[in-house]
Design a protein around this nucleic acid. Sequence first.
DNA 1: GCAACAAATATGATGCATCATAATTTTGAT
DNA 2: ATCAAAATTATGATGCATCATATTTGTTGC
Lengths: 238, 238
Amino acid sequence: MLESAQLNLAARPTMTDALDTLEHDNLGSTVYHLLCNALIQGKLKPGERLKIRELAARLGTSVTPVRDAILRLVQEQALAMKSARDIRVPHMTVARYLEIRAIRIKLEGLAAEMAAQNADAAQIALLEELVRQNEQALADGDTARGCDLNQRFHFALVDIAGMPFLQGILYRIWLQMGPLIADVYGAGGDDMLDFHYPVLDAIRTHDGPAAARAISDDILCGGQVILQHLQAAPAPDA
Amino acid sequence: MLESAQLNLAARPTMTDALDTLEHDNLGSTVYHLLCNALIQGKLKPGERLKIRELAARLGTSVTPVRDAILRLVQEQALAMKSARDIRVPHMTVARYLEIRAIRIKLEGLAAEMAAQNADAAQIALLEELVRQNEQALADGDTARGCDLNQRFHFALVDIAGMPFLQGILYRIWLQMGPLIADVYGAGGDDMLDFHYPVLDAIRTHDGPAAARAISDDILCGGQVILQHLQAAPAPDA
DNA sequence: GCAACAAATATGATGCATCATAATTTTGAT
DNA sequence: ATCAAAATTATGATGCATCATATTTGTTGC
């Protein structure tokens, strides 16, 4: 569940206080990103119901921005409207997961390939640092942090690839997997990280195709645990 | 520009008249799909400005559903908010086009590959019919229809592939290209269609990799005209 | 006690009033 | 006539009242 972390925007009479100069974000976008984070971090469980009024009260805004945000998430299928007034975090199905996996292999493979071509020393160092921290998180048994670092590694590749449009697509895809991954990351944490080393090697040697293959391995093998979990759990209707 | 085609939904006191049983679409979604069609069919030109109140008046609804729809399109970058109250059809840049092209080759290649594996006789016949009609449209000099049939061919592949999630991703990608393609389809109509024949051949023989290569050729060669157009036109700021 | 109907509640959809601000026009001093 | 300041207008953002309906709860007859 979302923590009661307030937005505390209601106290602001106008909305020209803090972060308005560069990004002309409206409240709806703020709520949207808040919910995105909650989804990706697994704070919203599959099947959990969301109520617009309740969220609005929790966040200290009116229903309008919350409705904006939820409608956006429903559109991109990160949330599902089972009926006209029943908004829930959707369950993943096996078929859907396999489709997403195939798409990820293509797109993250592309990102890894371009990243291998482009990466400079500083960017490679950043990737190494992420892996190092992830190793530490696993050693500490901090699955939440490991999950977060795993995701950051994958998106660092897209960032290095210099493909902002691809980044948006992949972000939406990860949004789908967030509630699921958080559920099962603990079981397969090692597998998630082990396959990052071949990726790093390929990037260091600027071997694009090898990087793509390595990411493909990561997605296939690291996701094995997830797939087993899905096939085991009956996935109530969905 | 959008025609003055009305929605005429204002006349409905409640909204339980026609299409509510299966799809619990709200007005916002209706407006969204309307704008999507306008974008894909090139009825909205790059740089054109949209005004919420004006659209609402034109469509006979209040501003709320129009705002819903426009915010969604802004999120997926099919529309751009230059400033807080300046919503426009964005211009395509060369860099963005190249990125989208690389993504399309991966994703539509995947779709073609799966379609080649799956296609049954009826589905192959449908593809052939689309190509035939496209041939006819070109002969008639009907570029708008040719453009539409070209798009339908590409999406028929995704449909045959049986990948609904991929379909959504590709739809959003095509949304980006709609205003651009409509601008230059006339110049390269033949190139758009010629490369569909190798795709058909590969699908008939259920040769997945060949289908992927053929689609890649189609995207690369058919898009050549578009790329030249982009490099010629200075693309005002964007 | 249980089932069927009715009242009450909950909840998303829609329209709209109001606000803050950017864009535009008007006006007035030089 | 020109330019700058002020007034006006335009426009998206936000909040909220109201509506229709699904869901829940309560009541009543058997």
